[in-house]
Simulated scan of single mutants.
Amino acid sequence: MAALVYFKKISEDPDTITYSFGEDPPEMTRRLSMDRTTRRAQPDDGHIDYLFLKASRRINAVYDERGEWPERGMSAS
């Protein structure tokens, strides 16, 4: 079974970065907040599921690769 998740940075402040995410770019209705210090994400709706985990892990992986928080991206498996 294939899984896709897209994400896009929508806001940031000195402590937190907020991303929208979802299975289709036009339907990225969910949000997650990433703590810049701990690099831990929390879903704004409180629902920790596969899609949330996939998005947050990919965001952290891109940060590891580039040393900066991604503006947008996707993950497929």
Rank of each mutant, 00 (worst) to 15 (best):
M1H: 12
M1F: 07
M1K: 06
M1A: 08
A2V: 13
A2K: 12
A3T: 04
L4V: 08
V5Y: 05
Y6Q: 11
K8N: 15
K8V: 12
K9Q: 14
K9V: 08
I10Y: 10
I10C: 14
S11R: 15
S11C: 12
E12L: 06
E12H: 09
E12W: 06
E12Y: 08
E12P: 05
E12N: 12
E12V: 04
D13K: 03
D13Q: 08
D13L: 01
P14C: 01
P14R: 02
D15Q: 12
D15E: 14
T16I: 07
I17A: 09
T18E: 07
Y19T: 03
Y19R: 08
Y19P: 05
S20K: 15
F21T: 06
F21L: 10
F21I: 09
G22R: 06
G22A: 12
G22T: 07
E23L: 10
E23R: 15
D24L: 15
P25S: 14
E27T: 15
E27L: 15
M28G: 12
R30S: 11
R30H: 07
R30D: 04
R30W: 01
R31Q: 15
R31M: 09
R31L: 12
L32N: 00
L32W: 01
S33F: 10
S33Q: 08
S33N: 13
M34L: 15
M34C: 09
D35Y: 03
T37G: 09
T37M: 14
T38V: 06
T38E: 04
R39L: 05
R40M: 06
R40G: 00
A41H: 00
Q42R: 07
Q42I: 05
Q42A: 14
P43S: 11
P43W: 04
P43K: 05
D44T: 09
D45M: 12
H47L: 08
I48S: 07
D49V: 02
D49I: 06
Y50G: 12
Y50R: 07
Y50T: 05
L51W: 09
L53Y: 01
L53M: 08
K54T: 03
K54S: 10
K54H: 03
A55W: 00
A55K: 00
A55Q: 00
S56Q: 14
R57D: 13
R57G: 11
R57A: 10
R57P: 01
R58Q: 13
R58D: 07
I59V: 03
A61Q: 06
A61D: 09
V62W: 02
V62R: 01
V62L: 11
Y63N: 01
Y63V: 00
D64A: 12
D64G: 03
E65W: 03
E65S: 10
E65G: 00
E65M: 01
R66T: 07
R66W: 05
R66D: 07
G67F: 04
G67M: 00
G67H: 04
G67N: 02
E68V: 03
W69Y: 09
W69S: 00
P70K: 01
P70E: 07
E71Q: 10
R72D: 09
G73H: 06
M74I: 01
M74N: 13
A76T: 06
A76P: 00
A76L: 10
S77D: 15
S77A: 04
